[in-house]
Design a protein around this nucleic acid. Structure first.
Lengths: 389, 389
DNA sequence: CTCCTAATGTAGGTCTCCTCTGTAACTGGC
DNA sequence: GCCAGTTACAGAGGAGACCTACATTAGGAG
């Protein structure tokens, strides 16, 4: 029983304003009559609501649709550009950033290469450069930002502190949320990167529309992200999805099967080895195919555990190795078919390297939806008045 | 974006009436001033709302609290008794039923012994007898029932069909929701029993207040129920929680360790064997302790998989063996401590055999809350007018 | 140029809530 | 037994938001 508060007339107006905003966000520019139909309000009331929202800067009139019978209807749209969001992907080798409008439409993207053993300061500076780049590309200022969401490798505490990271040693113990809050003049969210990737796939990628999704990050490191009932699942201590830690799930050492295959040229650095095996498997090399088989055998154990436990609608294969999804998908499906009670769809990531930034943006949009555009959600009133552009 | 509808004045009244009902349900009998404070409405408006609800039969006046300064305030309470819910636990050896009011307060309980190999008709008849018994005990008629929720062993499809059941062979393929709908003149819900047990523990049992809970049904058969974000997690095909099916989780054969221990007298029927081992372990018998150790070793593997994946706040140990929780809890905690990133609390079931019926009641209450007492929830208007008692 | 269509704008009415003022009921001290 | 103090109840008047109904306006078709 969350909310026990009633409300007066102004609350009703607020509700109706929110309904109008949501209708406009869902269905693009609408005429007053169309909007009235969608919100269930009468036209005069709808007009009053729209006028108020226009005054606040949330809504703007667009030219009418010509060529129709009768008097042309004025059309209104939600001003998604009245605020901006930034998503950041903090990886071992790259910092990616993207800037979007309030609808999550991406307006600019940048990438800053880094090295896993870069010192803390250098990496933080790269984050700042990546975001500044986005701002410059889109012609915005930092003060236009409403929300920055960052995804990082490693285990992130509920408060945004990095508790553990195999990929970025310097990151361990860092108060990432605090650092970012110092860096940007707006609210900051921090989340694990695989979870954000999962969210992106569930919202706009391979699992669009599914409410229960398991995202597998397969690559040199393994990770998972869970979407349950349409939301990112963090767990009580924000440590959900760490099934790699269980020896019986056979995930931790699984990539070794690909690294130690005979088709890998001697002297190949370990980080490139798997690529050779996967490529050879695609060409039908028997040794490589056998190695891939052993790899998928292991991969399928942990995956089956997740599927049996959660019964997701879709399993999405992402991460570095998902470029070779054509080689992996078939064998994985086949093994899940045998192990699971109900086999979910298994699909390759549709977003690739952009997965995490997109997920960060989607996470920020969700946050906004929940705290600004949802009635009964705490202090969320539609009051922030957007700048005049 | 679920709901895009606005509303008019009557909607506001409805919202405020719901707020009043929720406040009364949460905090018991309240005076007008107290209610006004909680709902945020003025006293005159609160009075009008309460009068309307009284007229509809949802609210009733109770004698004022004597011994206070000033004019005694009239007090009002939610009439939880204006409708009734039934929860049913369909097990292999017992059918349990409970009847509760709209707050989930249990008013009557019955039990009907059955045998696992009873024919379909006999088991359905036992369900009917169990519920009739509750009605008779509490002096109600079937027409007073608003909702019947049933938990059964086995895998239940989203539509309420039993897809598989190891414990009740005759049950497989049965359209249980359909059968119950024919039996009772009200809405019917069907769910897996372990999930309902998990819900009961999360609502009123060992994990009260936790939003992410893993319930382990340990007994002759193993099962799990997951509460995620405060709700029962079913999964896309309602097959969530079936980790027993995975050989690597080492759950399926785990009970054998207890059955084959030397302390079990020869000729003991298999269903009683584990009890001897657990009892001997409590008394410190070395062979029994070793068997329990092997059992918990296996139990911990699947459990660690769940904990690592979901990071629940609490793990609840329920089912037949949970009577011996004192013997099992320590070793299980210790093993989880080693295997998990963040070890959740591990507690014994607080509800025992009543777990599933209680969970069924809680499930029904949740359903009501969502569909009757929540604004913005589909056709949920506070119109059903309760009988005059 | 007129008719038709579809949207706009305005007026009056209703509903719900709020604030304010006066009245009622009970306790405790003298 | 009476009076002051305290607390709650009851009703009147007013404001805000929505609805319906009707008159008005702008563009396209014949």
């Amino acid at each position: 029983m969350a909310n026990v508060r009633g409300g007066d007339l102004s609350r009703l107006r607020q509700l109706n304003a929110l309904a109008a905003i949501r209708a406009l966000r869902e269905a693009g520019p609408l005429t007053l009559t169309a909007l009235a139909e969608r919100t269930g309000l009468s036209r005069p009331s709808t007009k009053e609501v729209v006028d108020e929202l226009t005054g606040l800067g949330w809504v703007e009139e667009v030219p009418p649709n010509p060529g129709t019978m009768g008097r042309p209807a004025r059309r209104y749209r939600f001003r998604a550009d009245c605020g901006h969001l930034v998503g950041v992907d903090i990886g071992g080798h790259n910092i990616r950033a993207a800037l979007s409008d309030l609808d999550g439409e991406i307006l600019a993207e940048t990438r800053q290469p880094v090295r896993p053993d870069d010192p803390l300061e250098e990496r933080l500076a790269a984050i700042e450069r990546a975001v500044s780049g986005c701002l410059a590309l889109s012609g915005r200022a930092a003060s236009d930002l409403w929300l920055v969401a960052a995804g990082t490798t490693g285990v992130v505490s509920p408060e945004g502190r990095v508790q553990f990271s195999a990929a970025i040693p310097a990151w361990i113990g860092l108060d990432l949320a605090g650092e970012l809050a110092r860096m940007f003049p707006c609210e900051v969210l921090v989340e694990n990167d695989s979870r954000l990737a999962a969210l992106a796939e569930a919202r706009r990628g391979a699992a669009r529309g599914a409410r229960d999704v398991v995202f597998l990050h397969v690559g040199r490191r393994m990770g998972t992200g869970l979407i349950i009932d349409g939301k990112v699942h963090r767990g009580f201590g924000a440590a959900a999805g760490e099934i790699v830690m269980l020896p019986e799930a056979r995930w931790y050492d699984a990539p070794d099967h690909l690294n130690t295959c005979a088709v890998v040229p001697p002297g190949t650095p370990e980080e490139d080895a798997a690529g050779f095996t996967l490529a050879a498997a695609r060409d039908g090399d028997p040794a490589a195919l056998a190695a891939v088989g052993r790899y998928v055998d292991d991969l399928a154990v942990g995956t089956a555990a997740m599927v049996l436990l959660l019964d997701p609608q879709v399993v999405v294969l992402g991460g570095g190795f998902s470029r070779s999804a054509d080689v992996l998908l078939g064998p994985l499906r086949e093994r899940l078919e045998r192990a699971c009670l109900r086999t979910p769809e298994v699909r390759a990531s549709a977003l690739g390297d952009e997965c995490v930034v997109m997920g960060a943006i989607d996470y920020a949009v969700d946050h906004l939806d929940r705290h600004l555009f949802t009635p009964d959600a705490g202090p969320s009133l539609p009051l922030p008045q957007p700048a005049g552009r």
